[in-house]
Design a protein around this nucleic acid. Structure first.
Length: 915
RNA sequence: GGGCGGUUAGCUCAGUUGGUUUAGAGCAUUCGCUUGACGUGCGAAAGGUCACAGGUUCGAAUCCCGUACCGCCCACCA
């Protein structure tokens, strides 16, 4: 008998959980003596295995709703497969989560007034390990409370010695196979975290900044420009209006465009000292002019162009309305778009000859990287700069003169800025690529250090933080006449660290990289050939697209928390920047070695080679280890790999498809292969044997009521444990699943969970009603044939309905349509079974009327009653089985009281899925 | 710039290889109900041109083409 009153989840769950755990039901090795149990095995266990290596949550904090929703899916699939007769292994774990944990733990230390540096590497590692172990314990309890039927004795931490051993071995294998290498390269550097980051560990943020147009002016003033300046500065002159609005020009592609300007003229009867033609004049502040008019104005400045076609700027002194800044800005942009190196000098602002030099105008958002420029680059098709390509120029900078090559590359967009770019290979990814393509461009001239400050090659700016120096540079460039224009509201996107949100500084440094090309090929093919199937289907494209990006994977991080790289150097390598900004690494005798030469100074092995050898300071990217998770977890216990690999499913959120699933698909097939070939190099392995999982099920993210992703910082999260306490774990689990489909985000709020609490209570009451009416009857032992003969129309209809439901449910479970299954069950049990069937049979099953007089006493009525009771029993039996994967606690509790055949499984967990 | 998803009742969402039905559920709304499992309930009601426009079909929310709007991911912006 079930207790009276509404369903009490808190009490029941504890009782049922203990029951499950005490009996080792969560272990794949569980065997039962009961013949109807799916764990009943005669002789050796030859049950098919079903394995799900669970995504390990980060060991640095509490579990949240997102974790819980994943567990709900993982567990329901596990329980379903258990009921289908498979030996089910759900293998739990906890992730050390490298950089994230280091950041979190540093904050913990900060509160205690301690720092990482004070503690030292060893102590820090130990303390952080302890911190993670404590958190893991809490998380483990929470996982258990959710009813997650995982084998907790097999739980692993990513820094567990057994795991570490295998992860390091993978690195060594990759090295031996030439798939990892050490290289000096431009990487994303987080100045706050003091580590390199892979592209994927960075984000972009919208920002409004300044776009600086500055001049790389030639070292000598242009004599003609000086001559014009000296002749006309401040003069009143008469100008002949030459042309009017709408003159047509041809642009660099040969297309005609309309060059709109206001007024334009020439100085009659004068000789241009530059080339003996009339000197062109830009007129500002004159109205309604006609060609042929003569006007008087004051010369206020000179527009200089790289091709020496100078233009004098003349303003109408009588027009007080003219806004000079706007007018000049307009002209600057018009001219710079079509002509090389246009800039404007105002006679009174720039009286000295030295300002009248020619030079290139460049646009940049990061003037502080100027000191690292090693070339100028233009588009090869750009007519404006064609003649300059291949030449070397000497230009003025804020800290002295510099020589720069002018090169051409398709990557340059002629439309951007002035169509000419400064190449700063040590501080910008595109520039680095250009330097790699053009051997004449020096790639390494670093002017910003790992501390994010300008270094010694920046002269008086040394020691300033990159961002701080920008203001100072702006002032100085203005003072020296180098800044020719400034767009103060330029919108761009800045790259930031995913973890700490500080701006990324691209820097050159030595790191270890995985040559991903061959691994990506394999990973792509495994999915294309359906050895691994990704759900939802649409995400397969995302996966394949990522596999097509050619970039190698930077796997070293300059942290303390993680797997220390198993590489030893003869003398500790230390990066430094030479007098000229070149990045070097100190190896023994201060020599830069090629990769081949490295080997003399470097050993890749786990054990310490002894004196004079120092271990690499770096640790591996956390994804390098979690990317091997399905293999290394199974290698931790003897025989597991052989038994459980490849696994059947990887269930995780779609948001980490790129982060994690891709990495597993890169490393697991490789790792599985290299493990299997350890003893027998000639083994012939099939793709089916090495792929880590047959299916990838990507669940949606949990959103709040408004459709916004739940997060700590927004404070819109729901505490799953509060929900479990208030409404029951089954209700919470159901709320993740019901009416939801693969890959789709879904909104969650209390009322939803509450409604499933009500549903559980309904099931409770239906069961109470059923058991109460069955009473002492041995329904389970009734002869179905005899009952069939006595059945009435309602019974048959109900049986037919439930048979159809079973068929649908099984098909949908197999097709991963769990939301549909749960919803159909919901509607069936409530609106068919309870609302209709239960009500119609009441008159048949009661033995007494309202007054207590016996009824239904005739043989015929008794037969009919038995048929109804049997049907009740039959249906509830099926419902309990079908519902169990979704709401395990309440169904198990009812199952315990439910009339069962003698050989039936004692636990619903191993009761057969109906068919 | 490349890709993906969504658009169905007031709100949140299902709709399972096109057809069992008048397109369903939950929440909210209205009316009624101490009916012997359940008020965490029961009975009833109201609420939808399935984004828009075309096509395929005996038949379309479902398949195809296009449009609009919303959301997301990736790449790039000197």
């Amino acid at each position: 008998m079930l207790p009276k009153g509404p369903y009490d989840p808190n009490k029941t769950e504890k009782e049922i959980l203990d029951y499950w755990l005490e009996n080792d039901y969560f272990k794949p090795e569980f065997r039962s003596e009961q013949k109807l149990s799916t764990a009943y095995v005669e002789g050796a266990d030859k049950r098919e295995t079903y394995t799900n290596i669970l995504p390990p949550p980060n060991a640095n904090g509490n579990l949240h709703l997102g974790h819980m929703s994943g567990y709900a899916y993982q567990d329901l699939m596990g329980r379903y497969n258990r009921m289908k007769g498979k030996a089910v292994l759900l293998l739990p774990g906890k992730d050390h989560a490298g950089i994230q944990t280091e950041v979190v733990f540093e904050k913990v230390l900060e509160k205690e007034g301690k720092t990482k540096k004070d503690m030292g590497r060893k102590k820090f590692y130990e303390e952080c390990y302890k911190f993670c172990m404590e958190n893991s314990e809490t998380a483990r309890e929470q996982e258990k409370n959710l009813g997650l039927s995982a084998d907790f004795d097999r739980e692993l931490f990513t820094l567990d010695p057994k795991i570490v051993k295998e992860v390091l071995q993978t690195f060594i294998d990759l090295y031996d196979d030439g798939l990892v290498y050490r290289d000096k390269r431009l990487i994303n550097w987080c100045v706050r975290c003091q580590t390199a980051l892979a592209d994927i560990d960075t984000e972009y943020k919208e920002s409004t900044g300044k776009l600086f147009y500055f001049k790389y002016g030639f070292t000598e003033p242009d004599p003609y420009a000086v001559e014009i300046k000296n002749k006309y500065a401040g003069e009143e002159i008469e100008v002949l209006v030459e042309r009017n609005k709408g003159m047509k020009y041809k642009n660099k592609e040969g297309e005609e465009f309309k060059w709109e300007f206001d007024y334009y003229g020439s100085i009659p009867n004068e000789t241009n000292p530059a080339d003996n033609s009339d000197l062109d004049v830009i007129l500002i502040g004159f109205d309604d002019l006609e060609v042929g008019d003569k006007v008087k104005g004051k010369t206020i400045g000179l527009m200089l162009r790289l091709d020496k076609d100078f233009k004098l700027i003349v303003i109408n002194p009588d027009n007080s309305e003219v806004k000079l800044d706007e007018e000049l800005d307009k002209h600057f942009h018009r001219f710079s778009k079509y002509f090389a190196g246009v800039h404007i000098r105002l006679f009174d602002e720039y009286p000295d000859d030295k300002y009248y030099n020619l030079g290139f105008i460049l646009a940049t958002t990061r003037p502080e990287t100027k000191f690292g420029d090693t070339a100028l680059c233009v588009n090869p098709k750009d007519e404006r700069y064609k003649d300059w390509v291949g030449k070397e120029i000497e230009v003025q900078t804020l800290i002295g003169n510099a020589k720069l090559n002018i090169i051409a590359d398709e990557i340059i967009d002629p439309e951007f800025g002035t169509g000419i770019m400064k190449v700063t290979p040590a501080h910008a990814p595109d520039d680095w690529d250009i330097a790699m393509k053009h051997p004449e461009v020096l790639p390494e001239k670093q002017c910003i250090g790992f501390d994010g400050k300008l270094n010694h090659i920046c002269g008086k700016y040394e020691g300033m933080k990159a961002l701080e120096s920008r203001q100072k540079l702006e002032e100085d460039m203005k003072k020296q006449g180098i800044l020719v224009n400034l767009n103060g509201k330029y919108k761009n996107r800045i790259q930031i660290c995913e973890r700490c949100k500080n701006q990324i500084e691209p820097l050159i440094s030595h790191q270890w990289f995985v040559d991903t090309d061959p691994l990506k090929e394999k990973a792509k093919q495994l999915v294309k050939d359906d050895f691994t199937n990704i759900m939802p289907e649409g995400k397969e494209n995302v996966y394949l697209n990522w596999m097509d990006t050619p970039e190698d994977w930077c796997i070293t991080r300059q942290l303390w928390w993680g797997y220390r790289v198993p590489v030893w150097y003869k003398i500790q390598p230390k990066e430094f920047v030479t007098e000229t900004g070149e990045v070097k690494e100190r190896f023994g005798e201060d020599i830069m070695h090629s990769m081949k030469d490295y080997k003399e100074y470097m050993k890749v092995q786990v054990d310490d080679p002894g004196d004079k050898w120092v271990q690499d300071e770096d640790v591996f990217d956390t994804w390098f280890s979690s990317g091997q998770w399905p293999v290394v977890t199974l290698l931790a216990k003897d025989g597991d790999f052989e038994k459980f690999y490849p696994t059947q499913i990887m269930e995780t959120g779609w948001d980490i498809l790129i982060f994690w699933v891709t990495r597993m698909m890169l490393l697991c097939p490789y790792k599985a292969k290299s493990y299997l070939l350890r003893d027998d190099k000639n083994l012939d392995l099939t793709d089916k044997e090495i792929t880590p999982f047959q299916n990838v099920y990507l669940h949606g993210l949990v959103l709040d009521r408004e459709g916004v992703k739940m997060s700590k910082s927004k404070g819109n999260g729901i505490d799953p444990f509060k929900m479990m306490h208030e409404f029951g774990t089954d209700a919470l689990r159901l709320s993740f699943v019901i009416g939801n489909k693969v890959g789709q985000n879904y909104r969650l709020y209390e009322e939803k969970i509450e409604s499933f609490r009500n549903y559980c209570n309904k099931i409770w009451n239906i069961s109470k009603f059923t058991l109460m009416n069955i009473g002492d009857e041995q329904v389970q032992n009734f002869d179905p044939d005899e009952i069939g003969n006595n059945m009435e129309k309602d019974d048959k209809k109900m049986i037919k309905h439930i048979d159809k439901l079973i068929e649908n449910s099984t098909r949908n479970m197999d097709n991963f349509n769990f939301g549909v299954v749960a919803q159909e069950l919901y509607e069936s049990i409530w609106h068919e079974f309870a609302d209709v069937y239960l009500e119609t049979i009441k008159p048949r099953i009661y033995t007494k009327d309202r007054k207590g007089n016996p009824i239904n006493t005739s043989d015929e009525a008794q037969d009919s009653r038995k048929a109804a009771l049997w049907t009740l029993w039959y249906c509830l039996d099926k419902y309990l089985r079908l519902l169990h994967p979704f709401i395990p606690f309440i169904t198990e509790k009812i199952w315990q009281e439910f009339p069962k055949k003698e050989e039936e499984s004692e636990t619903l967990m191993y009761a057969k899925w109906p068919n």
